[in-house]
Amino acid sequence: MSGRHEHRYSYSSEESGNRHEEENQLVPVVNNNQALVPMYQKHVAPPGTYVVQIPKDQIYRIPPPENARRFENYTRKGKKKSGPSCCCCALFWIIGILLFLGFLAVIASVIFYIVLRPKALQYSVENFSIKGLDGNLTLSSSSSSLKLSPEFDVTLKSQNPNGKISFFYFTEGSSVTVSYSDVELSTGTFETFYQPTKNAKVIEMALKSNNGVKMSNETRVSLIDHQELGNIPFELDLNVPVKVKVGSIKTWKITLKVHCHVSKNGLKVNSALVSSRCGVKAKALG
């Protein structure tokens, strides 16, 4: 092999002993002060290139296999430990974003209320005419129930007191029901129309019973008793899909739920309206 120098030394036992003696003997050295200083002279290997050969079975890769397995186990444990921490961090950010969006929604609602000053819609029953009940209640009730076909002509007044909010009413999906003591008497639908700001609208509705109403003897007697008292309570329920318009922006459809308590002094067509009271709630359509 190029660049390789081999130095071989062979000594006899006598020569080896003499050599060690020569290496360890004191050699006088003269310094500037003319004093003798004892020194050891050591043998120095001659310069050159040396090749060290190691058997293959003693060569190990870096890292050794056992260290590689330890490192892999350590990284797995680190991943397991970091899992919950990552989940907590992600959960923290999600909660933070939701709180921020909720804060923005509250601010938007406050601005909306301050700028628009929204007011609730107002409803009132102007007319409540009854057909098909007067006289039929006094018929002989030998059976346990009596089948009737009542009709109602209802006039409802809707008022929009808002100065910057208008409404679109839709017939599709609407329902109007008149009932007495939880017994549904007649049904119908609401009409489609647009109600602008600061506007009052009168709606007329004809409600009928398509398949007739089976009225129990108990309900019939209760209706007669209220008629004699001159105060017959009815309930009027309206479910109407509407869209709210603010400027040029329209919202999605919401359902207005109007519930009215109506009292009549009789069951004739021209019976007087004793009292009426209506309330309204809004529900978003899912």
Rank of each mutant, 00 (worst) to 15 (best):
V125R: 12
I97K: 09
C89V: 10
L99F: 10
G163C: 06
V125K: 11
L91D: 03
D134A: 14
T187R: 15
S186M: 12
S143A: 10
V115A: 06
E126Q: 14
S140A: 09
S141H: 07
L104M: 05
N199K: 13
S144M: 04
F168S: 01
S179A: 11
K201W: 09
S174N: 06
C87I: 13
A206D: 12
L156T: 06
F167D: 00
S186K: 02
W93K: 04
C89Q: 13
F190C: 01
I97P: 00
K201N: 11
S109E: 01
E204T: 14
L101H: 03
S140V: 11
F128T: 03
F128V: 01
D153F: 14
V154W: 13
I94D: 03
N199E: 06
N210E: 07
L98P: 02
K147L: 09
Y113S: 11
S216G: 10
S141I: 04
Y169D: 00
F112M: 03
T138F: 11
L133H: 03
C89H: 12
S158L: 15
A120W: 07
S124A: 13
L99T: 07
T187E: 06
S175L: 09
S179E: 01
T192A: 05
E151Q: 14
S141Q: 05
D134P: 00
K208N: 05
A105R: 06
S141E: 00
S109C: 04
N136M: 08
